[in-house]
Design a protein around this nucleic acid. Structure first.
Lengths: 212, 212
DNA sequence: GTGAGATTGTGAAAATAATCACAAGGGAAG
DNA sequence: CTTCCCTTGTGATTATTTTCACAATCTCAC
């Protein structure tokens, strides 16, 4: 029989990480309940939006009281795939790759960087924190050995497609792409684009509108 | 008389940086015209969306031919505030701050990191590339001297609000905040939130849905 | 157990965004 | 100058997202 698959709106999914943060904070402080209004204040959004978002889980709040912090946290972890540990391969051991390798936010969300890869021989054998840097040619073998399933692309735009092709070939089905280019990949491969410039240019736009 | 201020939808503004990239590429190759369909192919979106987005400028395309690359580029630069050079202060000279300091994408978009700031005395006086690291206490004086107007927060979440308060005090009106906390700031201050975890967790969600 | 107060869950309405489909031009060739 | 072809610009439509408003129902105090 088909598993019950609630479809969450994209906009809702994008907010779950925020909810996760607040809930984690409350959980650490052993606060058992949180209301939508309380969350809304913390996050600067409306409480009705939060309730609507959470309603896709079905009815898991407690009327008159709020939401059970631990239970809600479990549900959000589940839907974000955080119940299973995922290992990442960072391809491109430049500044950005290194910054991500050392970013504690990943581990806090069940995401573990297992290794970095680079084409620069000068970097092979060195390490970032505890993480080894391998030649890109070892991507296939290390993927097997370390059980990595997400490829993080922190290479120059000009190299991104080639690197992606290689990663697809060795079996990666998910990409987190920081290179500002659209990747051509097979149908069944997921690509999440991350473009830092969008954020700062949005800010620049508002700044220009407001102050000239 | 009030300047004509066309209001661009948020979603449209978020796509302008993509358009900027394609146009820059074409401009470098001295290709004078580009059609919405051509752009759409490059970017993996629909051509009608592009036409709709560009229609907010008024009518600047050429029917039967496409858009003048250089002219369109000028318009997009203008609306994104890229016609004026903006200087950034990076507060928090950790891995992420350093990565951003060395990120060429910023300069390519008219954004110039002028200095970094940190509370760690061990970092004072050292530099990242050509960029000096100052004590946070010098924020006010260096802001004047270097003409910085955007504060980039790459400090731990626990320090973000305090640092923001200081930056507001010395006159910053725009923040690019990488710390995963909502900042309490005066009405007239702009904050652009950047949360790397959202992207990777969205990917994780789709991965979990698709492959379990 | 009862009433007062709080907070959820959710249909309906409003706002925003994306897509469609085609009339209105403009270019190019002869 | 006319015809054919191409691509824009845009109203209309559809889809998605947010907000509203209130009935349902749970807690807590007594």
């Amino acid at each position: 029989m088909p598993e019950e698959l609630v479809m969450f709106p994209k906009a809702t999914i994008a907010r779950f990480p925020m909810y996760f943060r607040v809930l984690t904070e409350y959980s650490h402080q052993n606060i058992p309940l949180i209301s939508s209004e309380e969350m809304a204040q913390k996050l600067g959004i409306t409480s009705s939006q939060i309730r609507k978002d959470l309603s896709y889980f079905g009815s898991l709040g407690i009327r008159g009281a709020g939401y059970d912090v631990v239970y809600l946290l479990t549900k959000i972890k589940e839907v974000l795939g955080m119940d299973k540990r995922r290992r990442l391969a960072i391809i491109g051991a430049g500044k950005l790759g290194q910054a991500l390798a050392g970013y504690s936010g990943l581990k806090q969300h069940g995401l573990e960087v297992a290794a970095l890869f680079d084409t620069d021989p000068g970097k092979w054998g060195t390490s970032i924190g505890q993480l080894p840097i391998f030649p890109l040619t070892e991507l296939a073998s290390q993927k097997e050995k370390l059980g990595m399933e997400i490829a993080v692309l922190t290479v120059p735009a000009s190299a991104a497609q080639d690197v992606a092709n290689l990663a697809v070939e060795v079996g990666f089905k998910a990409f987190w792409n920081f290179a500002p280019v659209r990747l051509a990949v097979p149908e069944d491969v997921l690509v999440q684009y991350e473009d830092l410039v969008v954020g700062i240019l949005t800010l620049s736009h508002h700044l220009a509108r407001k102050f000239g």
